[in-house]
Design a protein around this nucleic acid. Structure first.
Length: 616
RNA sequence: GCCGGUGUAGCUCAGCUGGUAGAGCAGCGCAUUCGUAAUGCGCAGGUAGGCGGUUCGAAUCCGCCCAUCGGCUCCA
């Protein structure tokens, strides 16, 4: 029988045999484990979106004959197709393309697969004048498969849906440039992104979700909640922390400092500039120069990293094995000359503060140090409400060992220490072959936020390179000198990026201990202003960040203002409350909570603050 | 850096094919003293991102620059 025969109803769109997608026309035998899947299966989405990409290309060729096709895969949130059109697409073109796609879907054209030899493939692609596709087949072996739908035919591995009508709801999302084969030396193409679903309802809810995500954008909320600003006249990529952001930042820094103090880190403070000589030794001047700001005709460098400066302090005194592990921490502000097109709010900037630390240790100490870093990282992300995360262990590319610093033994020991640290903690992780930086293997946390986006969290990297460049040695119990092992680690990465991520994760609704304004007192009339002042003083005595809204507006107005400003607590005070020395408590997004005694309120606030600030 | 889009009042945005700038919110003033998401009236606010060009005339058309958005590439 054919795979297609397994499909029993409309929702099923593809067939898996031995966990691989097969073409629906393929003959299958009984000994294969075959089952039909629907859109909700990740591979089902793949097929669905891949066919949608073909429909997109079909539509583009119908409207813009002569367009060259690149590649058009399914991606995590939909699909794209790369084109070289006769003219760049305009926004109106995109609308027309979407309409044309809908037409192709309505026609419900059957999709067929056929195979060709190399010779035939080249002939066919030449006939279609799709030269880029000919470049593509160089990496594959014959026979080559094609998928045909009406007058459109595309070189493609497949599989695909049975017909274009299976796609029920489609939306073009954006157009952007992309380089052919992802290499900026190659020609630039126009990439159209889209998404599709088996029902208009699902499409609508997906688009709604995208809208909601936009509302969380830290750039938008950052402005609205007075968290940060970037000033054109002062330069792009440079963050000005406003009063709200500075409150958040200081709370986070305080927690960070106390956690590191408890773990025996030594705090240091280092200058923002250093002579080029230092960066020559570290190697940055050779391989990182295009990202560095040079001063005084290149004699000085605005630091892009803290490590060389920390190393100087470490080296200042001769170290013995008794001094190790030696842990050095700094909230160190660095500057990197990022390309203009990559800047993005607080997430990608030119000046940022790394929550940096360097651990100098011996091989036997390595694993425990890694465990301590991972534990700190886990506690940290939990405190900030991240529930899901993924650990990645980046390893060498076994194919090209020559590009790495350090000896074979170094790598084995370090990779072993990183892996067994995670094993000991019963943490699951992905092994990422070839993802390691040249100086050593590392572990990264990938955090997932409240709406499923991922953020880079804690990172823990072993470095074999700098200890050798700076000749970092300690005297062992054997009286001999040995190279120290250096760990670079950051719990947040950078304060800017972490806070930018937090804004979106919390959607601006910060937990009480972080909220820039924690409580707003709302007197109903001027008669309550005295009592409001007394209450405010009591709250401020307990370090509660609170204000009084004395404007001559109605309560409804003041409440609305406090709600849209995302103030966690509102204390409404009228005549009744003054008499009973209480407040009418309202919780942000939850509404009226009834009457609470004023003293109780102060205690509650104090407790909530302590809860947020308590050790991890 | 590259491709495309955008840049009008503090914010969000209108302004047809060139005829000399407008709304809501915020702000300020006055009135109002009010019970859980917007009280009314009034006032003020703009070198239209910058520079140059076309034109009798430019927010509008053209060029360059800057910033920004979506991506590519790179990254904390």
């Amino acid at each position: 029988m054919k795979a297609f025969d397994l499909i029993k109803h409309n929702q099923q769109i593809a067939v898996l045999c031995n966990n691989h997608l097969v073409d629906l026309d393929q003959e299958i035998s009984d000994d294969q484990q075959c089952k039909p899947i629907d859109f909700n299966h990740p591979l089902g989405k793949d097929v669905y979106w891949h066919t949608s990409a073909h429909i997109l290309a079909h539509a583009v060729l119908n409207l813009f004959p002569g367009t060259k096709l690149g590649v058009g895969p399914a991606v995590e949130e939909g699909f794209y197709y790369d084109f070289i059109p006769p003219q760049p697409f305009t926004p109106e073109d995109l609308e027309n393309i979407e309409q044309e796609m809908k037409k192709i879907i309505e026609e419900n054209i059957e999709i067929h697969r056929f195979e060709k030899t190399t010779r035939e493939t080249i002939d066919l692609l030449n006939e279609q004048q799709q030269e880029l596709k000919i470049e593509l087949i160089e990496n594959f072996q014959e026979p080559f498969s094609f998928y045909q739908q009406g007058n459109f035919c595309d070189l493609c591995r497949g599989p695909h849906l049975r017909s274009t009508g299976k796609v029920k709801a489609v939306k073009i999302l954006s157009v952007a440039a992309a380089y052919w084969k992802g290499d900026e030396k190659n020609k630039s193409m126009q990439r159209i992104y889209g998404v599709s679903f088996p029902s208009p309802k699902e499409l609508k809810s997906h688009l709604h979700m995208l809208e909601e995500a936009k509302k969380r954008d830290h750039r938008k909320l950052g402005k609205k909640l007075d968290i940060f600003g970037i000033y054109e006249e002062a330069g792009p990529g440079l963050i000005y922390w406003h009063k709200g952001g500075t409150v958040i930042r200081k709370e986070i820094e305080n927690l960070w400092i106390s956690e590191h103090r408890q773990r025996g880190y030594n705090f240091v403070t280092t200058p923002h500039i250093a002579k080029a000589d230092l960066w020559k030794i570290s190697g940055h001047l050779d391989y990182y120069k295009e990202n560095m700001y040079l001063l005084e005709d290149g004699q000085y460098v605005l630091k892009p990293m803290n490590c060389p400066e920390h190393i100087l302090i470490f080296k200042n005194e001769q170290k013995s094995y008794k001094d190790l592990p030696y842990k050095m921490a700094e909230l160190g502000t660095v500057y990197r000359k990022e390309r203009s097109g990559v800047l993005h709010g607080m997430l990608r900037v030119r000046g940022f503060t790394q929550d940096d630390a360097h651990i100098f240790c011996t091989y036997p100490q390595l694993q425990n140090e890694i465990i301590e870093v991972l534990e700190l990282g886990l506690g940290w992300i939990k405190r900030f409400g991240y529930e899901k995360f993924q650990l990645d262990l980046s390893l060498r590319d076994p194919g090209q060992q020559e590009k790495y610093a350090g000896t074979e033994e170094d790598w084995l020991k370090a990779e072993q220490a990183l892996a067994s640290a995670m094993d000991e903690m019963n943490l699951e992780y992905r092994r990422m072959e070839g993802e390691a930086v040249f100086y050593g293997p590392k572990i990264d946390f990938q955090l997932q936020d409240a709406i499923g986006r991922t953020w880079q969290g804690t990172t823990c990297q072993v470095d074999f390179n700098l200890p050798r460049r700076f000749d970092l040695k300690y005297t062992g119990a054997d009286g001999q000198d040995h190279y120290v092992i250096m760990i670079h680690r950051a719990i947040m990465g950078s304060v800017e990026r972490f806070v930018g991520g937090l804004i979106e994760h919390y959607s601006g609704n910060f937990p009480f201990w972080l909220a820039p304004e924690q409580l707003r007192i709302i007197p109903i009339t001027d008669n309550q202003h005295n009592f409001a002042e007394q209450l405010k003083n009591k709250l401020i005595d307990q370090e509660v960040r609170c204000t009084i809204d004395k404007r001559s507006e109605k309560v409804g107005y003041k409440i609305r203002d406090a709600e849209t400003s995302r103030v966690p607590l509102m204390a409404i005070i009228g005549e009744r409350e003054v008499e009973s020395e209480s407040v009418s408590l309202r919780v942000h997004q939850q509404g009226d909570q009834g009457t609470v005694n004023a003293e109780t309120l102060v205690g509650m606030c104090k407790e909530k603050i302590e809860e947020g600030r308590k050790p991890l």
